[in-house]
Amino acid sequence: MTTPSAPLDLLYTDTEEELRAAVRALLADRCDAATVLARAESGSPHDPALWHTLAADIGAAGLLVPEKLGGAGAGHREAAVVLEELGRSVAPLPYLTGSVLTVEILLGCDPSAPEVASLLREIAAGRQICVPALPLTQAPGAPLPPPVRDTGGGVLTGSVGSVADATAADVLLVLADTGLHAVPATAARLTPLVPLDLTRPLASVSLESAHGVRLADPATARAAVAGALLSGAGLLASEQLGLAEWCLAETVAHLRTRHQFNRPVGSFQALKHRLARLWLDVAGARAAARAAADALATGAPDAPLTVAVAQAYCSGVAVRAAEECVQLHGGIGMTWEHPAHLYLKRAKADSLALGTAGHHRGLVADFAELPAP
């Protein structure tokens, strides 16, 4: 007789709300729209001082790291709350890559190994930023890219394209034919790419006889990466939720104050209907994102299905919310001075990150044993 799984808990705990309040206050003070716009246009969006405050002072970088390794010993639900707030402000910080994907990969290796444990401690303390050298579009359930070649003794040669936040990293996690290796970012040649989303920089990573420290064997490494991609896709839904919530709230606020024909624009019935539909979409996205975070936190056996459903749904909601935000702001929504375009670009980029909505719908069909004709 099998034990039934615990019911999903979609509500936020008091602890999660306190964490949200701390992160939101920090971002409101130091990552407002004008600051993000200026940093995005500068070509160097990453803010090391802001990252240190979030990662070390608030302790967000170590939420998924066990306490014995210097982390908070929290879980995916708490990390999801942080990502909601980062999405709400389109913060140019390497949290998804550096504190979710990387930590999940390292925990999927042997956390008791000295090299892995040391790296986890550095990440949790906010002293190092480590990102996986994987394409941002790499999806869970899809074949991994060809590994980098190990020419012997941990000397790596090869290249990986479209790596997110590589330019902000101190260490890169590289999947080689001999396993997972930690490579100093200074040992790689990083070629910045022109991304659609200016708040999440991309780069091509080239390794030419770069020395790395081996962290895991090939089988363990590939399993760890697969697990991390699943968690990353599930928590990306929370970032998309935060983004959609900001777009909805900002649009409603604008339509309340914008007047035409001596009436608030928001009083027009056609716009009311559009906002009502968007509100329903966002409410559904909140349920899907919270379900994915809770399933990952509890290790639910149906977590892969729940994550696929969340990504299949939240991806489109974020894009629709951002498109409505731009359009319903009228002329100002089309200007560079208004942050709406940053949200649209992040939503579009997120719709490709860690698998498209179409890819995740295919996974849902596979899990339901209803393959496409």
Score class of each variant (00 low, 15 high):
residue 207 L to P: 09
residue 2 T to A: 14
residue 168 A to W: 11
residue 317 V to W: 09
residue 269 Q to R: 11
residue 153 G to V: 09
residue 281 D to R: 14
residue 218 P to H: 10
residue 65 V to K: 08
residue 17 E to K: 10
residue 195 P to I: 07
residue 225 V to Q: 02
residue 214 R to Q: 00
residue 270 A to M: 13
residue 267 S to P: 01
residue 114 P to T: 04
residue 205 V to A: 09
residue 168 A to G: 06
residue 188 A to V: 00
residue 17 E to T: 07
residue 295 A to H: 11
residue 318 A to Q: 12
residue 183 V to H: 00
residue 151 T to K: 09
residue 57 D to K: 02
residue 355 G to K: 02
residue 261 F to R: 15
residue 372 A to V: 13
residue 31 C to W: 05
residue 249 A to V: 06
residue 131 V to D: 01
residue 88 R to K: 04
residue 350 D to Q: 08
residue 2 T to C: 02
residue 343 Y to D: 09
residue 179 G to C: 08
residue 76 H to M: 12
residue 310 A to W: 01
residue 332 I to W: 10
residue 175 L to V: 01
residue 37 L to E: 03
residue 293 A to E: 02
residue 206 S to V: 06
residue 191 T to E: 11
residue 156 L to G: 07
residue 170 D to M: 00
residue 147 P to C: 07
residue 323 E to T: 10
residue 234 G to I: 04
residue 280 L to G: 05
residue 254 H to I: 02
residue 38 A to S: 12
residue 37 L to Q: 11
residue 254 H to S: 12
residue 275 L to N: 02
residue 5 S to D: 04
residue 3 T to I: 12
residue 144 L to W: 03
residue 257 T to L: 13
residue 37 L to H: 06
residue 68 K to S: 12
residue 316 G to T: 09
residue 257 T to F: 04
residue 26 L to S: 05
residue 236 L to M: 13
residue 126 G to I: 11
residue 298 T to K: 06
residue 264 P to K: 12
residue 199 T to G: 12
residue 188 A to R: 04
residue 22 A to M: 10
residue 48 P to W: 12
residue 295 A to Y: 07
residue 347 A to T: 00
residue 123 I to G: 11
residue 316 G to S: 12
residue 358 G to L: 12
residue 233 A to E: 10
residue 277 R to A: 10
residue 309 V to G: 00
residue 82 V to S: 02
residue 221 A to F: 06
residue 21 A to D: 10
residue 369 E to C: 04
residue 234 G to W: 04
residue 43 G to I: 02
residue 256 R to E: 15
residue 171 V to L: 09
residue 319 V to M: 07
residue 182 A to Y: 03
residue 306 T to D: 10
residue 236 L to G: 08
residue 167 T to L: 14
residue 336 W to A: 15
residue 25 A to G: 11
residue 27 L to A: 03
residue 109 C to Y: 04
residue 312 A to E: 07
residue 344 L to N: 03
residue 128 Q to S: 09
residue 179 G to T: 05
residue 46 H to K: 11
residue 254 H to K: 10
residue 291 A to Y: 03
residue 323 E to F: 07
residue 23 V to S: 03
residue 223 A to K: 07
residue 232 G to C: 03
residue 48 P to E: 11
residue 243 L to T: 14
residue 188 A to F: 01
residue 169 A to N: 01
residue 354 L to N: 07
residue 181 H to S: 11
residue 325 C to Y: 15
residue 319 V to Q: 01
residue 279 W to A: 11
residue 175 L to I: 04
residue 97 T to C: 00
residue 363 L to P: 05
residue 280 L to V: 05
residue 155 V to W: 08
residue 113 A to W: 07
residue 182 A to R: 10
residue 279 W to L: 13
residue 281 D to W: 01
residue 236 L to T: 12
residue 210 A to T: 07
residue 198 L to G: 00
residue 296 L to N: 01
residue 117 A to H: 04
residue 49 A to M: 03
residue 81 V to W: 02
residue 365 A to K: 13
residue 177 D to N: 15
residue 349 A to W: 06
residue 212 G to I: 04
residue 100 V to P: 00
residue 79 A to Q: 14
residue 198 L to I: 03
residue 24 R to N: 06
residue 205 V to F: 09
residue 108 G to I: 06
residue 372 A to P: 00
residue 12 Y to W: 15
residue 127 R to I: 08
residue 317 V to D: 07
residue 171 V to I: 15
residue 126 G to Q: 08
